[in-house]
Design a protein around this nucleic acid. Structure first.
Length: 490
RNA sequence: CGGGAUGUAGCGCAGCCCGGUAGCGCGCGUCGUUCGGGACGACGAGGCCGCAGGUUCAAAUCCUGUCAUCCCGACCA
């Protein structure tokens, strides 16, 4: 295989790109900024989808699908929404091609110009709220709890596999409620679901809070977010949930008749996570030996590798290996028996390690004799020899331990890289080293902007605290209600 | 859109200054020996040297144009 992986310490961003491409998660495509998600990567995304989808359904949401194209006029109905997205929209202007008269191949047929241009959705609020108008008349139609799995396009200047691509996959929930309180509760509930998913499934600890006005979603009243810390000390926004107030209801005239027979605008939320989570997953746990996947999301949880010198040995070992495979599968463990005769064991060890498979079982002639197997953990790279009997239970326990250990390691890392900062000189010094900086802020967008201009750090989130401790702004010295998290971010 | 760089085999690169018709490593194929941490040997397949012009007896190499990609900045889940 000869997969040369750049080291995490020497060149973090190259290390990340190497991992994604060499572990066969994704690759760049012929279309600038767009990626091909390969089977091994897509399998992980499918597991993420399945887990999230269940969580959405369990909280009363239903899936639906809305169009890829949005009429330009819809788009401009909510002022701050257009402003936020206008600079990164792909626009469809024609609907036909023709052969060039000068023989220069296929060209756009100028006669086939659209009356009204179509925007390729960067997000679907507008088309969805235009539709909701016809669905909602009475308080009895509420709440309306819809999610869609879709692709969206945002024309980014610079792209990176999974973290920022021109087209990406995501889910977007769009809900309508009769009261403000209910809508806020929905936005908060979905944030908790995202946090639970990140921590329980991805083994990635996240902070929860709200965005400052500068970082708020275009068209939202309040943006809630989860933020994770990557191994290079940069923060990554992993999911957002928005309380949209009545902004879209007013823009698209979505009213309902209340119990009191009064016509009112509905209250809205929207929330989403994307294939960016794949990037977060890679950067949270992986090391210089390659990918490290949490067992709950790994498409292969255990790989069994035979070690043999001849056909006779191979047959005997295969028989055992398949027995073990069966016993593991009976416990719903996903197992691959790598019986390829074209590669040596050492090669396979390295390859599966690189691909992040949580556990490896090796079986050789010695094991057959002693009724043992060699088992290796990807997270610690530790090996031990175990009795074959009861291996299924042992593996199940180990997978659970690995899942926990990955979370704990990531949490320890975040704790060690979160700093309370009280002076501007400490701030400027620490931000160079990375991590979350917990500091006081005077609450003004101007100060946030100045801090960003001087240090490239932004407010990642404002914690929701029952008992906020006031202090003095780290930059201006003016009064501050509470500490907020600053970091450089992806 | 500004600054820098690069386009040569599937991938990574050398050759270019000093023109003479293409080479290395990995990978790929066949056969044999191997197999408890990235195996070895033999043979073999694979390239209009990004594209278009020009100079020249002759261009991967020199000149002009063009396209594409990557890195650094302004934008962002």
């Amino acid at each position: 295989m000869a997969k040369e992986l750049s080291s995490r310490e020497d060149n973090y961003s190259q290390w990340y790109t190497d991992l994604v491409t060499k572990a066969d998660l994704a690759e760049n495509s012929a279309v600038r900024g767009c990626m091909v998600i390969k089977p091994y990567g897509y399998a992980i995304w499918e597991r993420m989808q399945a887990a999230l989808d269940k969580m959405f359904k369990d909280t009363g949401h239903e899936n639906a699908y809305f169009p890829l194209f949005i009429p330009k006029s819809f788009f401009s109905k909510e002022a701050s929404h257009v402003e936020g997205f206008a600079k990164e929209c792909a626009v469809v202007t024609h609907y036909r091609l023709k052969n060039d008269e000068n023989g220069k191949g296929i060209v756009v047929d100028e006669d086939a110009k659209l009356e009204e241009e179509l925007i390729v959705r960067p997000t679907s609020e507008t088309i969805i709220w235009d539709t909701y108008r016809t669905w909602i008349q009475s308080y009895r139609d509420l709440p309306l709890l819809i999610n869609q799995w879709a692709n969206v396009v945002r024309w980014e200047m610079r792209t990176r596999l999974f973290l920022r691509t021109t087209e990406f996959l995501w889910q977007e929930g769009h809900t309508a409620h009769s009261t403000m309180e209910e809508a806020v509760a929905e936005a908060e509930q979905m944030l908790r679901i995202y946090a639970e998913f990140a921590e329980d499934w991805m083994a990635m600890p996240v902070l929860q809070g709200v965005k400052s006005p500068n970082e708020r979603f275009a068209g939202a009243v309040e943006t809630y977010c989860i933020e994770a810390l990557m191994q290079d000390g940069k923060a990554l926004q992993a999911g957002t949930s928005h309380f949209l107030g009545q902004n879209f209801a007013k823009a698209f005239d979505v009213k309902f008749l209340s119990k009191e027979n009064k016509l009112e605008y509905v209250w809205a939320t929207s929330w989403g996570v994307s294939t960016r989570l794949m990037g977060a997953l890679v950067m949270s746990h992986s090391d210089n030996s390659g990918l490290v996947l949490p067992p709950k999301l790994a498409s292969v949880q255990v790989v069994i590798i035979p070690i043999y010198k001849n056909q006779e040995q191979f047959d005997a070992i295969s028989q055992k290996a398949l027995e073990i495979k069966k016993s593991l599968e009976a416990r719903n463990i996903r197992v691959k028996y790598d019986n390829r005769d074209t590669h040596k064991p050492g090669f396979k060890f390295t390859e599966w390690e690189f691909k992040g498979v949580p556990l490896r079982i090796a079986i050789g002639p010695r094991d057959l004799e002693n009724q043992t197997v060699e088992i290796a953990r990807r997270d610690t790279l530790e090996k031990e020899v175990l009795q074959m009997t009861g291996i299924d239970l042992k593996v199940e326990n180990l997978l659970g331990q690995i899942q926990k250990n990955l979370f704990q390691k990531a949490l320890d890392f975040r704790n060690m890289n979160t700093f309370k900062i009280d002076s501007w000189s400490d701030f400027t010094e620490q931000i160079e080293k990375g991590g979350f900086l917990l500091a006081h802020w005077d609450g003004t967008p101007e100060t946030e902007q100045k801090i960003k201009d001087e240090t490239k750090a932004t407010i990642r989130l404002i914690p929701i605290e029952s008992d906020p401790k006031p202090g003095l702004c780290v930059y201006t010295g003016k009064p501050s209600k509470q500490r907020v998290y600053f970091a450089r971010a992806y």
